[in-house]
Nucleic acid binder design. Structure first.
Lengths: 217, 217
DNA sequence: CTCCCGCCTTGACAGCTATCAATGACCGTT
DNA sequence: AACGGTCATTGATAGCTGTCAAGGCGGGAG
């Protein structure tokens, strides 16, 4: 927990792939604060494929497993397997879109909007990770895999504001705080409205997810 | 000016490469506001290489030229030319880092800090585009290629706050507002301090840039 | 079992920003 | 030259957030 996998400015000699658990990608600023720029879950690839130093450190957020390939071999593998190459490219493009989604979320001036966007992103992006997003009869339950401090760093604010905003969303009956890190989503539309996002497509896909989850049981 | 090149949600049938001018990548929200998530300058590639719809619209910010390759041919070209494939991958990875830099900037809670980070990013990233960043005897001059409205959308705030923050930085003798869109940088360290970033490396490279620019003349 | 420590939460206050409104500068048009 | 439009700026006020401080809760060590 909290161990460093890749240090800032380092050029790692391997390409990693997360198998389970959660890693966080962050940058430490001059004043000691560290800002989180992304979370890595199972299936995510980290470490730059071709040269160049990583500008961001990677640390373990929860118990996690990952595998590492020597970078040279991985690059050769990419050369020989167009399919793998294409998959890595698609993965990178998806991460790029995700990073831009983060930008939209961070552009929201009210904290409640940022948290609403964060929760929606969790639901839409991590819907396949069942220990994070669970579909229940009452709606969806999200287990936030990081603490208030990290969440604040992620959303560009402070733990106190996170707490207040979550309880404000609860007062609006948009969510329910089951445990500090276990959030029940009561009203997706309200969240989307709060986030200011046109998340209609996202919500539709979530509805599909819920249907599938119910059929599974 | 303001024309749409690629629409949101569309799957463009070409891959574009900016030759000159400036394009902006943005997303329109449900309430009509549009948030800018990136600027494209010469050499930047846009349009997804492999399938998938673009989540962001691309519009012309200034007079611009770009070339377009049919997507199918481009993908075949990638298959046949490992060098090009590698270059595109590197380009994408760089954009990813840039997007994460944006996240850091947007995480800054004070507007002056966000603008300081923006200016530093302009200097470090667009230092080769001489109609945007110019080295002069007094320091560096940055021509901001977008208006206050767009700048506000980019930094997640409002035009009024942009104006106030710029003039605050001027009062601190960190910058000089030569024209509304032409900013002279007087004190890089002050900007870095304001941004809270450990931009020492960045500043060093800027110093190199200044030296080179002076030798050029 | 008790203590200690970290985390989450809540309250009070200062500081900053969003918002509304109004003014002035610049540009293209008439 | 006069007009209308957009854009940048400035002021006043309300609202929200950062900050500091304190209290409550749970888990681990002794």
């Amino acid at each position: 927990m909290g161990q460093t996998v890749v240090q800032e400015g380092e050029t790692p000699d391997f390409v990693g792939c997360v198998l389970s658990g959660l890693l966080r990608m962050q940058k430490t600023l001059a004043d000691g604060r560290h800002h989180i720029v992304g979370l890595l879950v199972e299936g995510d690839i980290f470490g730059r494929v071709f040269g160049g130093a990583t500008e961001f450190a990677i640390e373990v957020a929860t118990d996690a497993e990952f595998c590492a390939f020597p970078r040279g071999e991985f690059e050769e593998l990419l050369m020989r397997s167009p399919d793998l190459d294409r998959a890595v490219m698609l993965n990178t493009l998806n991460e790029l879109d995700r990073a831009r989604d983060w930008m939209i979320i961070l552009s929201n001036q009210k904290i409640t909007g940022r948290i609403a966007g964060f929760l929606l992103l969790m639901v839409t992006r991590f819907s396949t990770i069942d220990h994070i997003v669970k579909a229940r009869d009452g709606g969806i339950e999200i287990r936030i895999p990081i603490g208030r401090q990290d969440l604040a760093h992620l959303l560009g604010t402070r733990p106190e504001s996170i707490s207040r905003a979550l309880h404000a969303l609860q007062d609006d009956s948009a969510i329910r705080i089951i445990e500090p890190n276990l959030i029940g989503v009561l009203d997706l539309s309200a969240l989307a409205r709060e986030a200011g996002e046109d998340e209609v497509d996202g919500i539709r896909s979530v509805r599909e997810l819920l249907k599938v989850a119910r059929l599974d049981r």
